[in-house]
Amino acid sequence: MRLSVPNIPPALLAASIARPTPQIPRAAAVERISEFLSPGNAVVLTGAGVSVDSGVKAYRGKDGRYMNPNYQPIFYQQLIEDSPRGAAFRQRYWLRAYIGYSPVRKTLPNTTHYALAALQHAAVIPRLITQNVDGLHHKAIRRVWDEETIKERMLELHGSIFKVQCRHGHEYPREVFQDWLGAANPRWKTYLDDMERQGIKPKTNPDGDVVLENVSYDDYVIPNCPDCLSEGRTNNVLKPDFVFFGESIGQSVKDRSYKFIEEADRLFVVGTTLATYSAFRLLKHAIELRKPVLLLNVGPTRADGVHGVDKVEIPTGEVMRDVVREVVGGRAQYDPVLRDMLLSGVDAPPAGYGDESRAPHAAMTSGPVSPASDFREPNEALS
């Protein structure tokens, strides 16, 4: 079996690096984006780059390459495999995800999240699609939208880290499952509690996974699904409610994402290389419908050179607040919600961000297990 991480096609990546889009002055970028959004009824498609200023690492660096070439993510087929090999993958995944979830849960929206939320509040961008599973867009807009409105106007294309589901369809809040994992693995709960008391923050991927070195996963216990037990079967094949590498999005989500594009007059793409086809096809759909498309991203993307796509190359955090002020005009002064959102948001990108495009994540060292483990992670070839 040959599994690969979605990426920008090599020929396109090479051409984009050879002929990069020039970064334009900040004032010119604000003007172009504002002119694009001012007519309203825009749909926004966001990616991991939007969450970087919140301290969440993106999958790809500023040169468009996958940032962790030596890191092997677990694929959907591996996670659900009903075999001892699949069980080993699940132990590895859930131990690392148990450690990595806490930093993601505590992450706060940044200035771009709040700028987009301000435009949502102002009805400039009534619909938003995100590839991110971190829930930060939701945190930003909850100040003014209730859960029903969020569900109606926002779509998590790849799911959410805040839910867990078993292979038979039972679903649980992630916080509940974290408690089950901690109860089943008290040594690791103590380890995680100690980390949090000491303020240690592991380097975490956008899906909540961390790298652990010199650790045995053999004795890590994954709790059984309680609803399955009540139905008379044993089942500990559970996964976060998001799309893994190698997994397809559901038809209902795909249909809804297309509908969002069709109901809008224009598409604003922010902070993504569009390496995953589930996102790239939305851009293609907008172009097929002759809708204007503007892409705001730093570095090469899969859409570079695509006819009908205008691109602005500048970090989102440098421009989006000013874009809001330009688009909403005087409302930014007298609307208390807009004023509040334009003053909100963290600005805390990961240390060294942008300098790691060819280096693997720094890894955490061993926890409360012997570093002399002979465990070997299954090795799948990645293209």
Results as ranks from 00 to 15, higher is better:
residue 1 M to H: 14
residue 1 M to P: 12
residue 9 P to Q: 10
residue 10 P to W: 00
residue 11 A to M: 05
residue 13 L to D: 00
residue 15 A to W: 03
residue 17 I to V: 15
residue 19 R to K: 13
residue 23 Q to H: 08
residue 25 P to E: 12
residue 25 P to F: 08
residue 26 R to V: 08
residue 28 A to K: 06
residue 33 I to F: 11
residue 34 S to I: 01
residue 34 S to T: 01
residue 37 L to E: 09
residue 38 S to Y: 12
residue 41 N to T: 13
residue 48 A to Y: 11
residue 54 S to C: 13
residue 69 P to I: 01
residue 69 P to H: 02
residue 70 N to V: 07
residue 74 I to S: 00
residue 76 Y to R: 06
residue 77 Q to N: 09
residue 77 Q to K: 12
residue 80 I to Q: 01
residue 90 R to G: 06
residue 94 W to P: 03
residue 96 R to P: 12
residue 105 R to H: 10
residue 109 P to R: 02
residue 115 A to Q: 09
residue 115 A to Y: 05
residue 118 A to F: 08
residue 120 Q to F: 14
residue 125 I to E: 11
residue 126 P to F: 15
residue 130 T to N: 14
residue 135 G to A: 11
residue 137 H to A: 15
residue 140 A to G: 09
residue 142 R to M: 15
residue 142 R to H: 15
residue 143 R to K: 14
residue 148 E to L: 13
residue 149 T to M: 15
residue 161 I to A: 13
residue 173 P to D: 04
residue 176 V to F: 10
residue 181 L to P: 08
residue 188 W to M: 06
residue 194 D to S: 14
residue 202 P to Y: 10
residue 205 N to L: 15
residue 207 D to I: 07
residue 207 D to E: 13
residue 210 V to P: 06
residue 212 L to E: 02
residue 215 V to Q: 10
residue 216 S to R: 03
residue 218 D to H: 14
residue 222 I to N: 01
residue 222 I to L: 03
residue 222 I to E: 02
residue 223 P to L: 05
residue 226 P to K: 02
residue 227 D to L: 08
residue 232 G to I: 03
residue 238 L to Q: 05
residue 246 G to N: 02
residue 248 S to R: 11
residue 253 V to N: 03
residue 258 Y to K: 10
residue 273 T to Q: 07
residue 279 A to P: 05
residue 282 L to Y: 06
residue 284 K to Y: 06
residue 285 H to R: 12
residue 286 A to D: 03
residue 288 E to H: 04
residue 291 K to D: 00
residue 292 P to L: 07
residue 293 V to F: 05
residue 298 V to K: 01
residue 303 A to C: 01
residue 321 R to V: 03
residue 335 D to E: 13
residue 349 P to I: 09
residue 355 D to E: 14
residue 357 S to Y: 09
residue 359 A to C: 05
residue 376 R to D: 06
